[in-house]
């Protein structure tokens, strides 16, 4: 990074630290913070979409669809999310490969499960063995995002279906009395008003999502926990920057990062609640109406 970092042994004190904190591996560590933020930013809207779909399915008039929606919203209540994080990527990976296997190698006659092995034809492998490294990493990240989206979609579905029920029923009845079809009154009356009821739940969900993000480590993504363990471990004098076990300090850094992230989020959410409460039939909204 810096020119004077060429010979780390000769460095002392702050200069050593400055050089140490700008090594190539540390740059990867800093970039992994971006990975975590990317996961949060990508997962949140996808999970919200999953949740909206789930909440709509749970209210559907078509019974099997309704049953599916109810099952989806109920599944996170009894089972720890970490089981889903371990299960979903593996299951999806095998599911995708199985589907591709069926399509690409129709004349394959051996069973796919042979004892403790899961064997599909070469062309069905995901990602292909010949693919470059970044495809493997992106695919792993994609599976992680999908796992997070499935789990948090179920949470969001809970929140959203609660919010849909919280919209005053009289409003829907009025809409029906004015001759709006159920579909129209859903989109024009219920959906615009439900967000203020959903916001506290969704805000909490966002905080939970932040706090679930270090679980990326368990999914094999090289995230901040991975690098904190990697960089913090004791380094012998064979390394350019030998140091004792510093994992405690690295994890302390991660703790501060997460505290800052949740603290900031809480403040933004507080403001958003006030903003969305304007003109709403809630206590805060009524109070704000009086103020102005």
């Amino acid at each position: 990074m810096f020119a004077n970092c060429a010979d780390p042994d000769s460095l002392q004190g702050l200069a050593w630290l400055a050089c140490y904190l700008t090594t190539g591996k540390h740059m990867l560590f800093y970039r992994s913070f971006g990975t975590v933020l990317a996961l949060l930013v990508i997962t949140a809207p996808v999970a919200l979409a999953f949740g909206f779909g789930g909440a709509m399915a749970a209210r559907a008039r078509f019974a099997p669809l309704r049953a599916f929606g109810k099952l989806y919203t109920a599944m996170v209540r009894g089972v720890p999310d970490i089981i889903f994080f371990l299960f979903v990527p593996l299951a999806l990976d095998q599911g995708f490969e199985w589907l591709r296997h069926k399509v690409k190698c129709p004349d394959w006659d051996e069973p796919i499960r042979q004892g403790a092995d899961f064997i599909v034809c070469q062309a069905a492998k995901l990602p292909l063995n010949s693919d470059p490294q970044w495809v493997h990493e992106t695919y792993g990240f994609f599976l992680a995002v999908l796992a997070f989206a499935v789990v948090f979609g179920a949470f969001a579905a809970n929140v959203l279906s609660g919010a849909m029920n919280a919209v005053p029923h009289a409003q829907m009845e009025t809409a029906a009395a004015y001759g709006l079809t159920p579909r129209k009154s859903f989109w024009r009356i219920m959906v615009p008003q439900m967000w203020i009821y959903a916001l506290p739940g969704l805000g909490n969900l966002w905080l939970i999502l932040i706090k679930a993000s270090p679980l990326l480590f368990l999914l094999g993504v090289e995230d901040i926990v991975y690098w904190a363990r990697e960089l913090g471990g004791a380094k012998t004098s064979q390394y350019s920057y030998p140091h004792p076990d510093w994992r405690l300090w690295y994890f302390l850094g991660l703790l501060v990062f997460y505290l800052a992230l949740t603290g900031l989020s809480e403040r933004v959410l507080g403001r958003l609640t006030r903003r969305l409460s304007r003109g709403q039939a809630t206590a805060l909204g009524a109070q704000m109406g009086r103020d102005t």
Binding site: I210, K211, A212, S213, P214, L215, F217, V225, A228, R229, G232, D245, R247, L248, F251, L252, L254, L255, Y258, L259, T262, G263
Partner: peptide, 21 residues
């Protein structure tokens, strides 16, 4: 704030490293 604002996963790691010391 400390325990509600940070992930339990990180708390486990941190505590373990602390106890090792």
């Amino acid at each position: 704030f400390l325990f509600r604002g940070s992930p339990l996963f990180i708390q486990f790691f941190l505590a373990y490293e602390l106890f090792v010391m």
